[in-house]
């Protein structure tokens, strides 16, 4: 688990897939922690990387940028990156930035893992 104040990111293995579960607001002060966790997870070359945002109540453009960067890196490695568990407020931010069409988004972590 990576920690930054109250910002924790749990990492779980599900077979060959990795699930990251950040917990707390993702803003400019925390996006670097998320970026490190995503890079580390991709470095392990999982068959699938799932980012479960169910416990993220707030995300700003620095969080979006971090996920876009990770998605690009994942595509280069041919690793599917799937988001899930978006809260209403976080989904609204994705929609404002029109990124809900860029990412693969599942409703639940289990659906995201199964693909």
């Amino acid at each position: 688990m990576t920690g930054d104040g109250k910002f924790n990111i749990a990492s779980e293995k599900h077979g060959e897939s990795t699930v990251l579960r950040p917990e707390g607001d993702v803003d400019m002060s925390r996006s670097s922690t998320l970026r490190s966790a995503l890079r580390e997870a991709l470095g392990d070359k999982p068959s699938r990387l799932v980012v479960d945002l169910a416990k993220v109540e707030y995300m700003d453009s620095s969080g979006l940028a971090t996920l876009v960067e990770a998605a690009r890196n994942a595509r280069t490695q041919k690793v599917p990156l799937v988001l899930c568990g978006l809260t209403t407020k976080v989904r609204a931010v994705f929609e404002i930035a029109r990124l809900h069409q860029f990412f693969e988004i599942a409703d639940t972590a289990s659906a995201a893992i199964e693909g």
Binding site: S61, V68, I96, F102
Partner: peptide, 14 residues
């Protein structure tokens, strides 16, 4: 432009 998906530059748009 939002069609150009890349990290950063979203703040003013938002």
């Amino acid at each position: 432009e939002l069609d150009d998906v890349r990290p950063g530059g979203l703040g003013v748009h938002i």
